[in-house]
Nucleic acid binder design. Structure first.
Lengths: 121, 121
DNA sequence: TATTTATCTGAGTATCTGTTCATATGGTAA
DNA sequence: TTACCATATGAACAGATACTCAGATAAATA
């Protein structure tokens, strides 16, 4: 699949990579930013995590609230919250033994709103 | 961890689920929309697919262009494009045996821009 | 027709992910 | 202290995912 000038002149339907690939490479995101963005989307790309983020957008909730809401175990929720915490999408506040979680990133809501529009078209 | 009114009155640090859970349930997305949104984010939550979408935002490209750009096999690209096609995020146009792919959803770019802002804060 | 190019597809496989389960930690109250 | 509650954590397991490989398909040309 190596395109060459000969093949290009010989037969005009052959793929001509160079220009497009170099253009794409030129406009490409730095690998680090691309990776970071993918990580964000991946975090939002799970039905339960997305429900958590949607709920926390409206009101802070503790782990067992979320577990009851999602109808899954508190352990499962805790694992998901750890992931969201590591990405700094949520933060928490302690009140006695109870941890109240809330959204910690204003982009998350914007992303959810656009995705919602998307589903409604 | 069933919360009851007795426990609530008895000990004020216990979780009080009912109000929050019912509030969250009230504001919750329909399961179908939630699932659809998660699917969109999941599709964008892979480094290679995100690179593809980013590249196609700038210029239409054929499969072997994309493969050369990403430095992965054409087969792998074809599998990823099928996924993106099924979600109607990209579409293609045939020119002889060559298929040129392009973005087919104006939300994708908005989402990428916000995610990019996110990474830069 | 046979051949070549570009792409697609299904099967197989290694890796990643999300859950469960058991256990640990931190805070509160008797 | 001891008991209890809310949450966190690590190991283990099942299912999902993304790649490779071999073969199929569609279009152009000889």
């Amino acid at each position: 699949m190596k395109p060459t000038n000969e093949t290009k002149e010989f037969c005009d339907y052959r793929c001509i990579h160079e220009k497009r690939v170099t253009a794409a490479t030129h406009d490409a995101l730095p690998g680090q930013e691309n990776q970071h963005m993918a990580q964000l989307f991946k975090a939002m790309g799970d039905a339960n995590r997305l429900k958590i983020l949607w709920a926390l957008e409206h009101e802070e909730m503790c782990v067992c609230d979320i577990a009851a809401f999602l109808k899954v175990s508190e352990s499962a929720v805790s694992h998901q919250l750890r992931l969201l915490r590591q990405l700094q999408l949520v933060s928490n506040r302690r009140e006695g033994p109870v941890l109240y979680y809330r959204l910690n990133d204003h982009h998350v809501n914007e992303l959810m709103q656009i995705a919602l529009e998307h589903t409604r078209e």
